[in-house]
Simulated assay, not measured.
Amino acid sequence: MKIFYAIQATGNGHISRATQLHPYLLKHGTVDFFVSGNNATLDLKLPIKFQSKGCSLYYSKCGGLDYWNITKNIRPRQIYKDADALPLKDYDIIINDFDAITSLACKMQNVHSVQFGHQASFLSKNTPRPEKKSLMGEMILKHYASAPKNIGLHFEKYDSFIRPPIIKDQILEATPKNLNHITVYLPSFDQDCLQKAFNKLNDVQFHWFLSDVTQKNTVNNITYYPVNQKQFNQSLITCDGIITGGGFETPAEALYLGKKVLSIPIRNHYEQECNAAALKKLGVPVVYDVAKDFDQIIANWLDLKITYPKIQANNIPETLDYLFDTYRS
């Protein structure tokens, strides 16, 4: 079987998921990957056969989306050209993890596909939403990477086609410890937005993962790390808690390990607002504004006694069997 797997690289979660799935997919046939977008900072240790700049996200300085930069970097003509060039009819199955170019190519070439990933879960009305829904956000989630078949991933089974998160082997096989540090991963924040707040908590040790850091170094109570999968996993496994955005994979892995989570969703990022609504239902504190007293917010969070529900890990062979059966039906 020849498998085409499209990855939306607007973040590291899609790449991390594909990397975990790759050896399982190889049991079913050969796999060619298509990467669209350029926001991811993880090393691509996958057989990438096709690549496109696609649509990428750009962030403002302190925790928001920069819509001007996002819009001006979209190249509609190139997107159509890239979609037309994908030889999808050469493949037996098309798996799409929220990529618009592959979705467009399937329509142009009259090829079947399945949308597989976290964003597919929002096709269910049962999946948590914020109190104030966004019409534009809902349209993007529904139409951006549409496919005839959909298999979603989320914290809980909100609907019949939704499965548990894909958890990396290093996390699954880990024995969690608490070495009394706080892991920080907030890619939409520049260093100077949060550093003063962290420094005020001089009795708390922070492991802060930043895309512009090239080498591990420690200044006062903060150890700065490059965005490195192995180092991040180790920090997460041994942390007291993690401060992260409103993404899906990182909170899921933290909850699987039984770690404290403080979520700061990216401003005006509707999917992250939806994830924040789901995390709230699980008892996770969510913060929308870090402009004032963020150090006190962290201190209060660390003092909280919270017992989170145990997150189930995805049974990958079972899910892939379901995916292939769904594709053929």
Rank of each mutant, 00 (worst) to 15 (best):
63 G>H: 07
164 P>S: 00
247 G>I: 11
173 E>P: 13
34 F>N: 01
92 D>Y: 13
35 V>F: 11
271 E>Y: 12
48 I>C: 06
248 F>G: 06
250 T>N: 10
24 Y>V: 09
311 I>A: 03
121 S>H: 11
135 L>D: 11
164 P>R: 00
248 F>C: 04
305 K>E: 05
229 Q>W: 14
306 I>Y: 09
66 D>K: 02
152 G>K: 04
52 S>P: 15
278 A>C: 08
281 K>E: 15
146 S>M: 09
98 F>P: 07
33 F>P: 10
8 Q>M: 10
267 R>K: 15
37 G>R: 06
20 Q>W: 12
164 P>W: 01
253 E>P: 12
323 L>E: 07
224 Y>G: 04
244 T>K: 00
292 K>G: 00
265 P>R: 01
204 V>A: 03
239 C>H: 02
84 D>F: 15
290 V>E: 00
11 G>N: 04
107 K>S: 10
14 H>L: 05
239 C>R: 00
118 H>P: 12
316 I>A: 07
321 D>P: 11
205 Q>K: 11
277 A>M: 14
18 A>P: 10
153 L>C: 12
275 N>D: 09
327 Y>W: 11
129 R>W: 15
199 N>Q: 07
264 I>M: 06
52 S>A: 14
238 T>W: 02
1 M>E: 07
165 P>F: 02
107 K>I: 14
287 V>C: 05
291 A>F: 08
